[in-house]
Amino acid sequence: MLEARLAQAAVLKKTLDAIKELVTDANFDCSDGGISLQAMDNSHVALVSLLLRADGFEPYRCDRNLALGINLNSLSKVLRSAQNEDIITLKAADDPDNLSLTFESQNQDRISEYEMKLMDIDQEHLGIPETAYAAVITMPAAEFQRICRDLSGISESVTIDASKDGVKFASAGDIGNGSVTLKQTHNPEEPALSTSIELSESVTLTFSLKYLVNFTKATPLAGAVTLQMSNDVPLLVEYKMEGGYLRYYLAPKIQD
C-alpha cells in the first residue's frame, strides 16, 4: 500500500497547475524512492518528468511499486478543495481502484476526505539518455517567464543562442522582431536572482514558444530555472523544488 503525507498542499496544487495543460492522463509511479511521473503531450513534442522524493513526505510508506493512473483534470478539481496550508495524505491499496486524499487544516479542526477513481493507462516510458549538455543556464524563474511571454507576442518561435557573450532569446514575426540578452550576473545575497552560464561550446536552437510559455506555469514552484541545451537535441528545462524536481523536455525546430 501507499501512504504519503505532505506538509503543504500547495506543493501538489502548484505541480498540478504546472502540468495539467500539457498532459491529460498519466501514471503516478510510486516506489520506495518516492512518486514520479513521466508523460508526453499529445503531439509528442514535449515531455514532463516529475519526481517527489520519499524524503519530501513525512511519513512515506510504499510497500510495493504502484502505478496510479490519474486524470490530471480530475485530480486538479479534487485538489481545489484543499487549502494551500493543508496537510495532504495520499493513500492507495496494493491493487487500487481509488486514490484516497485527506486534507487536514494546520490546527486539525477540519478534515476533508475525498476518493478519486483511478484509470488504467498504458503508458510509454521514453528512454532519456544521460546527456552532458554544452550549455547550462540558470536564471530567475520569473525572468524566464517574462521573456517567453514577451516574445510570444512577436512570434511563435524563439531562437536561444548561448555563447560566451551571454544568452540571447530572439524572435522574428509579422509585426517585427525582438530579442533579450542576459549576461552572467552574480548576486551573493540572493543566489536565486543570479544568472549563470556554463558553456563548453556555443549552442543555437529554435523552439516553439507555445510550449515554453506552458512550462513557465511551474514558476511558482521555484525561484530559479535551469535550461540545459546541446545542439540538435531537446532542451531540458528544470525547476528544482524542495524534495524533488519538475523537468520538461522540448524537441527543437529543425531546418527543413
Binding site: M40, S43, H44, V45, A46, L47, E124, H125, L126, G127, I128, P129, S157, T159, A172, T206, S208, V233, P234, Y249, A251, P252, K253, I254, Q255, D256
Partner: peptide, 14 residues
C-alpha cells in the same frame, strides 16, 4: 522557421 521535431527522434521509444 524550421520544422517541429518530435521527441521520438531523440529518445528511445519503448
Amino acid at each position: 522557421p524550421g520544422k517541429q521535431a518530435t521527441l521520438g527522434s531523440f529518445f528511445a521509444m519503448p
